[in-house]
């Protein structure tokens, strides 16, 4: 996408991989009291966290901390604003560049934690952060923005890495509409939702899980849009076959009018002929309308077009 070749993106990409701020050591070692607070709060009754006798005989050989409590160990605790500002990392940072470029709003989208070992009372964690990736500029339902993936490493008192966390957030420029809606606390207008019934639920569940599923009869006939019966063999039995996601543009339109919220215009809508042979309507993204051609190779992707709403989209196939 031509738009992405901006100085901003170049600047941000130069900062990826470099540490953000100084490594920070936890205020307290892993301890039973905090574990107990946590287990009370989420009502986690797993005895390996709180029952020394049970834990002793367990695979752990003693009390361990709940793995998902990871972040809690290095949280700063209650701070005044002055303290918070004093702690903020100095120098250029990706998030600051985005703030300065007007992408002032933030929403967390994904969190992935991987644990190398369970933590035990006495472990003292040190945490370090870096920016792992910054996406091209994306149009989202909230507004135009960049997805930023922050990588956090947790090391113990011996310098051993015990866990990592990847945290993905969207820094975006709120649209006037979404900003207004946010101010008023009103719900944002969402894209029309499909009507889900027994015949199509698999498709929409698949999309939510990032899979493009096509109805396939056991006689081999692929059907889209799906329906209850195979027109070839009249079978009512079928399975959901996962499409490879590759296809070509069979036709397309560029919507300009009427402007219907929350769509952004011009809105590029394509009829894709999938490699498997069926056609499907979707959006084509990260491309200018004048670059689209019938026959162009495209591939499926799954975008979170609004919070908690995954939608099938297509993009130009690379290479």
């Amino acid at each position: 996408m031509k738009k992405s070749e901006t100085p901003l993106l170049d600047q941000m990409r130069q900062l990826t991989g470099a540490p953000v701020g100084e490594p920070n050591t936890a205020r307290d070692p892993v301890n039973q009291a905090m574990i107990r607070h946590w287990c009370d709060a989420v009502d986690d009754r797993n005895p390996v966290y709180t029952d020394p006798e049970f834990a002793e005989k367990s695979v752990h050989g003693g009390i361990v901390a709940p793995p998902t409590m990871l972040q809690a160990w290095t949280m700063p605790g209650l701070m005044s604003r002055e303290e918070r500002e004093a702690r903020a990392p100095r120098g250029p940072s990706v998030l600051r560049l985005l703030d300065e470029a007007g992408f002032t709003s933030v929403v967390a989208t994904n969190c992935t934690q991987a644990y190398k070992r369970y933590l035990r009372p006495g472990d003292l964690l040190t945490v370090s952060h870096s920016i792992e990736a910054v996406s091209d500029e994306k149009k989202t339902a909230l507004g135009v923005g960049h997805f930023v993936t922050q990588l956090t490493c947790y090391r113990d008192q011996n310098g051993e890495e015990v866990a990592t966390m990847r945290f993905r957030l969207l820094k975006f420029r709120p649209t006037e509409r979404s900003a207004g809606a946010e101010r008023r606390g009103a719900p944002k207008r969402s894209r029309p939702v499909p009507s889900i019934n027994h015949d199509n639920r698999f498709f929409w569940d698949g999309v939510q899980a990032g899979r493009l599923l096509i109805q396939r009869c056991f006689c081999g006939k692929l059907r889209h849009p799906p329906g209850p019966m195979c027109p070839v063999c009249r079978s009512l039995e079928w399975e959901a076959a996962e499409a490879c996601g590759r296809g070509t543009v069979y036709s397309y339109v560029v919507a300009h009018h009427p402007p219907i919220p929350p769509f952004e215009y011009p809105n590029l809508i394509v009829l894709v002929e999938l490699e498997e042979g069926v056609r499907i309507v979707s959006n084509l993204v990260d491309i200018e309308p004048e670059e689209v051609e019938i026959g162009m190779a495209v591939r499926a992707r799954f975008d979170e077009v609004e919070p908690d709403r995954i939608l099938l989209q297509f993009e130009r196939a690379k290479g």
Partner: peptide
């Protein structure tokens, strides 16, 4: 772990955040 039991070892949690 409520389902799998206390000695099931959590290796990785990968979540997407929504509503």
């Amino acid at each position: 772990t409520d389902w799998a039991g206390p000695e099931a070892l959590i290796q990785r949690v990968d979540i997407r955040l929504g509503a």
